[in-house]
Amino acid sequence: MVAYLLAALFLALFAVGVRRDVRRFGNAVLLGLAVAFAVAGLLGELDRLPDGVLRAASDVLPAAAALGAVVVAVLLIGNGMVMVRQEGGRPANLLSLAAGIGGFGLIALLWAAAHVESRTLHAVAATALLVAGYLSFLLLCFLGYAALYGRMPPRDDADFVVVLGAGLVDGDQVPPLLAGRLDLGIALALAGGAEGRSPVLVVSGGKGSDEQVAEAVAMAGYAVDHGVPADRVRREDRSRNTAENLRFSAEIMRAERPEYHCTVVTSSFHVLRAALAARRAGVPGQVVGARTAGYYWPSAVLREFAAVLLSYPRINVAAVLLLVMVGATAGWRP
């Protein structure tokens, strides 16, 4: 009963948080806690089952969890290998491979701790399990809330549609990832608003060290070639990252229309982090995501999740240190 009451409490707090601002990572955590306590309540109902069924469930659930962990690790390693073949061996492309290897490392550590009488090994295994559990919980919160936020339909009263840059190829060419963002942004800009006026398209991206032109220049050319009138395209060509994309684009929009509202377009994996960044930058807008190639998604999501964690350093460092202290003190007994 207590678990269900806590689930209801966190769900109510989640509803309040969403009402205040849907672009808060705290909403994701509150929703995750509500689901976690609801699941805990359901698991508590197992005590009411007949002894035979209870024993079977006690055997099946741990085995299913272990099998699921192995399957996830295998899939991550497989995806990592595909990423290396398709995108090269840059560190950002190795995240799913590293996560899969780390998953097998944790499984091996827990197996060893269960079969070796060593207090030190038990403490290390306990610490690793607690930290992995904490990160896994936050990752599930991130994935769940990103899925919910990404399904919100774009508003039809936007004055501007902002397309975030994603790098060029061959120095001045729009790659498929960026083309996907531009295609969605162009569709929204050409669709028109609630009052019959078409939003202005803002393309945002500066010039990288390996690029011949600023991303915004190539993006503007792509938009005009695909039907957007040149006088309804604005170029933000100074930014080097998402935060600057939003801040410098906001300056352009505010100068043209002080009381504006915008729709920000990025890739599907980047939606939640871009929404958090828009909130921090004070940009009054919703973020929508363009489709991303399936093989690219796992590593990209892990990169986005890591970036979100790093944006809350104090609370995450404190939580990890606490878990390390608990694991080192209590150890783990099989």
Rank of each mutant, 00 (worst) to 15 (best):
L13Q: 04
L135D: 05
G17A: 09
L33D: 06
R240Q: 14
V53I: 08
F10H: 08
L6V: 05
F37H: 12
A307F: 04
I101A: 14
A275E: 01
A8S: 00
Y134R: 00
S204K: 04
T329E: 09
L61M: 14
A66L: 15
L140P: 02
L42P: 04
G102D: 08
V124F: 05
D210N: 12
R85E: 01
L309H: 03
I101F: 10
H115D: 09
A64G: 04
G171T: 06
S311A: 11
S209I: 03
R303I: 05
V271F: 10
V74K: 11
A64I: 09
V163I: 12
V169L: 09
A290G: 10
A114Q: 13
A34M: 07
L321F: 01
V70R: 15
T127I: 02
Q86P: 01
D59M: 15
D225C: 03
R235G: 09
A275K: 07
R20L: 10
R257C: 11
R197N: 12
V213W: 11
A187G: 12
W297V: 13
L182P: 12
G133T: 01
A15F: 07
T242M: 11
H226R: 15
D156E: 13
P62A: 05
P313F: 06
D231N: 15
V202C: 07
V74F: 13
L54E: 09
V39D: 00
I77L: 15
V60W: 12
V53C: 00
A63I: 06
V124I: 15
P334D: 08
W332H: 06
L177V: 13
A255L: 04
G193Y: 08
L106E: 01
A112G: 00
A275W: 05
A223V: 11
L43Q: 13
F37S: 06
V161S: 04
F37A: 09
M219C: 09
P175M: 03
G80S: 07
N316I: 02
R19S: 07
G26Y: 00
W297T: 03
V217K: 12
R155S: 10
P50Y: 11
D156F: 00
T120Y: 15
W297Y: 12
L42G: 14
A8K: 01
M152A: 14
A223E: 13
A275R: 05
L30G: 02
A281L: 07
D231F: 11
A158R: 07
D156R: 15
A126Y: 10
D210L: 08
A128V: 02
E117V: 08
G32C: 01
G105R: 03
L188F: 12
K207E: 08
G294D: 13
E244S: 08
A64T: 13
A114V: 00
L130Y: 07
T329C: 06
G327Q: 10
V326N: 04
T329N: 07
A38E: 09
V217P: 04
A28I: 01
I186H: 09
F142W: 08
